[in-house]
């Protein structure tokens, strides 16, 4: 029986009945996406991302009844993942490690048209330098392409709070990237753009 046309909610109901095909379809849909999310959230540590993806899907296998069909499945999945990441942050007491590891490399004087690889390196460093909640907002908004409403639901906070966190994150990244872009007034530009239109 093919589950390709089934909704996520129907797949979860089938998984609750121990249907292996339904689980295979669900993993096909979200396995890579959730792995990538963990990879981005957990400092690009492939081993950790794999462990957390496994933990997430084991939860789905063992407790499918925890999903409330009234909610959006994707939002529920990200909420679970976000909670797993939060636990990991607590376990690792990450703040000390974070500061020593992910400060953007300001010593590197890149030319204005730096190649893509170096640009990505700087961008990663700038994203990693963000505080956890702001990083989560930025990743969900611009990397996972979730709406503000979805992010508010995942983080269990008002939409206005999400907006201001995304605003702060973009502003901070823009400021960190200033020397890469070579523009002196870039920070001001992003400030104006985000405040008016975000």
């Amino acid at each position: 029986m093919s589950y390709r046309t089934h909704t996520d909610s129907a797949l979860m109901q089938a998984i609750a009945r121990r249907d292996e095909q339904a689980f295979a379809e669900l993993y096909e849909r979200y396995g890579r996406q959730m792995y990538r999310f963990f990879y981005r959230m957990l400092w690009r540590d492939a081993g950790r991302a794999e462990d957390f993806t496994q933990e997430l899907f084991i939860k789905i296998i063992e407790r499918p009844e925890a999903y409330d069909p009234a909610r959006s499945f994707v939002t529920w999945l990200y909420t679970l993942s976000h909670n797993l990441c939060k636990n990991e942050y607590r376990r690792q007491a990450r703040s000390v490690l974070h500061l020593s590891r992910v400060q953007p490399d300001r010593e590197t004087d890149l030319p204005e048209n730096a190649d893509q690889e170096l640009l990505e390196k700087q961008l990663r460093a700038a994203i990693d330098a963000l505080p956890d909640v702001h990083r989560l907002c930025f990743i969900l908004r611009y990397q996972e392409e979730r709406s503000l409403q979805e992010i508010a639901e995942i983080m269990a906070c008002p939409e206005g709070t999400v907006k201001s966190r995304v605003h702060y994150a973009v502003q901070k990244i823009a400021a960190d990237m200033q020397h890469v872009w070579g523009a002196q007034n870039q920070s001001e530009l992003y400030k104006n753009l985000i405040i008016k239109y975000l």
Binding site: Y35, R36, R40, A46, E50, Q116, E120, L123, R124, Y142
Partner: peptide, 11 residues
């Protein structure tokens, strides 16, 4: 660039 960052990561 932020959106395409680490987009190739796969389990």
């Amino acid at each position: 660039n932020a959106a395409s960052l680490d987009a190739r990561a796969a389990p």
